[in-house]
Amino acid sequence: MIPLLDLSFISTLCLTRAGLKVDAEKAYLIESRLAPLARRECFSSTEAFIDALRHGVDDRLAWAAVEAMALPESEFFRDHHVFSQLADDVVPALARARGGEPVRIWSAGCGTGQEIYSLTMLLADAPGLKVELFASDLSERSLEKAQSGRYSQFEVQRGLPARMLVRHFEKDGESFALSPRVRQMVRWRRVNLMDDLARVGQFDLILCRNVVGQLAPEAGVHVLGALHDALAPGGFLALGQNDSAGKAFVRAAPDLSLYAATGQAARSAA
């Protein structure tokens, strides 16, 4: 059992580093996320690992702990109707509005890549559509896995239709490897959404689904403000179905969690 003091230390660490809301009461969650990390880093126990974090010996370890607590539960085509509408209506409409310039799309908090790859697989089959796809996450480990495009048998059965599996994946040993054609359409970068996002550029479509809900309220407001600034004029922000967009955005499509920046001329998604 992790002492309560250690639990609140982890909670504070996640809040200050990444704005992450980690309930100190959820001892089982903290234990289950940190125990594998403690083992990997050769500590005798989770307690010993947290003790080392407290003494601030290694900043890398502190980040690794925060990243472990931020791990998303990821599946392909989560809320699958969202993806078909993005690919069939929203992105083509943005492309027309851009008049030949590529549509810039950013998956912010991409986890192990299932979200951005779901959209990429659909866009890869849309002829003549010019897109630039970016994905970022706080966790280096998640990014490495995402970039590899390799998923377990269990993972490819979470949300991925069998026809998409046979179309875009090859079996490689025990894993399933996404085709290089799809994989190479996405560029990856480590981004802490709590940092200054001025340098990430501007995007026509930002996917930040089921991320804001994991953040502490003030951190959520901060991130939404930063995403607002990163949205190109006429662009859209896609949030998770249970995420709240706050005052900076207005809903752009009634049945999608798709938002436009408040104050911009309202335009239809289709």
């Binding site: 048998q153 239709p161 069998a162 026809r163 599996l165 046979v166 994946f169 090859e170 079996k171």
Partner: peptide, 17 residues
Amino acid sequence: NEIEAIREALDAGADEY
């Protein structure tokens, strides 16, 4: 769990796998 087997099942008329 080979891709070819899954494709064969889908081509034969299966909806999912």
